[in-house]
Every structure is written in C-alpha cells, then in structure tokens.
Amino acid sequence: MEAAFAEMPLALFSTLAPMGAGAFVILAAAFLTAKLDAEALGRIDRLTAIPVAFVIVGFIAAFFHLASPANAFGVFAGLGSSPLSNEIAAGVVFCVVMVVYWAWALTGKMPEGVRKGLAVVLAVLALVFALFTGMAYMIDTIASWNTLAGPVQILGYALVGGAALGVLVLALAGCADELKAGSLKTAVLAVLVVGLVCGIGGLAAQAMAANGLENALYSGADMVSSALMVIVAGVVCLVASGVCDVFAVRGGGASAVVGMGVGAAVLAVAGILLMRLAFYAMQVSVGLSMLL
C-alpha cells in the first residue's frame, strides 16, 4: 500500500473531480422532475459552487502530480493516441460547459428550457468524463488495470459521490420536500444503486483479476491482501454514504436532511479515496514496472 500513497494527488483527482461532475446528474434529475420556484433555483445555483469546487480542486490536485506543470498545455498533443490526453480533453470539455452553465445560471436569466437542456448535456458529459478517467488506466502492459472494471469503477464513484453532493446541494438549498417527492426520490435512489453496484462491483472484479496475476517482482495475491482492509473500509464508507442519502430522500426536518447530506458527502469522499488508493495498490505489470 505504501506505493499507492505516493499517488495521493491522482487519487484525490480521481475522487473529487468525478464526484463533482456526477453531482450534475442529480441536478439534471431535479430540474427535470421537481417543481422548483425561482428562489429555490437561485439557491441551488449559488450552492452549485460546491460541485464546481470539487471538480476544480480535483484538477489542482492532479497538477501536484506533475514534475513540470508549466508544460501542461501540451497534453492535447496526444489526443486520440494517449489515454491521458483523451481523459484531460474529456475533463476540459466538461469544465468549459460547466463554467458556462454555472455563470449563466448565476445571472438568474437562464430560460427553463435552456437550463434543462444544459443540465442534461452536463450530466452526459460528466459520465463521459468519468469513463475516460477510468480508461486512462487501461494500459496493455499493466495486466491488472487493463480491464473495463477500471472505467466502470470510476463511473460508479461519479454516481455515488455525485448523488451525495447533489443531495447535499438540494438539502442546503431548502429543497427537502422536493427530494422526497416521488420522481426525484426515485431518480436519486436509481443513481445511487447503479453507482454502488458499478463502484463496488468494479473494484471487486479488478481485485479478483489482480489476485491471479504474478510477475518477477511481486504477486497480485500479495498486493490484494495488503489492500484488503483499505478496500473493506472504503466499501463500508461508500455504503454508509448511500444509507445517508436514503435517509435524506425519505424526508424529515430540514436540518436532519442537511445533516444526512453532509454525512453522505463526507463518507463518499472517504470511501472513494480509500477505494482509489486500493486501485493504485493493485498495479501488476506484465514485466518490470512498479509504482514508486
């Protein structure tokens, strides 16, 4: 696990950025299903700063991973061939649309149709960004990562983490009643269940694959064994985050719903971060490569 902690900037990036992006899936569901008045929309728009901050802090964390961040604008040179270039491009496209949407929404002059349309586009771009983030690790010389379980995991984390952040934004915006209304409640729970299945199932599938691999430096079984407690702790946090979300959409006092939203978000950050560290700890090369 020690080598995995050296990848903390990337673990933070792949935790925070997909979470922030995934929150727009819940916001899109809210705009499409709930009846929100102008005041509520205004509060939601101001509180959208939370998922925006998650995305931006995630990208800043990624910069700390680079030895020469000044050359970072060159990352688009590998577009189409380098999975890392593709990931950053997907992230930048998402960020540009996110900033345009948010800035426009903050003016209070965004037409309802445009809001719904842009929110759906952002939700789709968020999922694409999450998938490309996972695909960046699909390298054919790293046998334990070269599996669709990677992108499926990140997609799951974007949905679970996004659900937590989305619920928090809506709870803080005083939309507890809208959250427990039929359609939005169903949407949140559906996102949550799909996210938990993809996130936990993806990591479990990757751990099982890594368990049977071996090279001249280490065995996958040993790596999985050393990461096992971290995986268990991550899964517990992620499931607990989902439970908080369930209580939040069941309704209750405004402060209780906010409390559940905060709990869900904190537990989601902890759970996803632990599971990302476990991912890095299970790198099994086909040859002579190890994280340092």
């Binding site: 991973h65 030895a67 050359n71 060159g74 040179a77 010389t141 790293i142 040859g287 490569s289």
Partner: peptide, 26 residues
C-alpha cells in the same frame, strides 16, 4: 521541453526504463 513529468511512460514501460526525475522536471 515538452515533458510534463506525469510518469505515464514509467507506468507503461514493462522494462523499467523511463523514470521521472523530479529535480530535472521530466
């Protein structure tokens, strides 16, 4: 002059050839 020192080459190479020298920045 182009390298950002992301370490992707180090991860991918199965012969342990490239390394990121953080002092040199590439």
């Amino acid at each position: 002059d182009k390298c950002i020192g992301c370490g992707y080459c180090h991860m991918a190479c199965p012969y342990n050839a490239p390394k990121v020298d953080r002092e040199k920045g590439h």
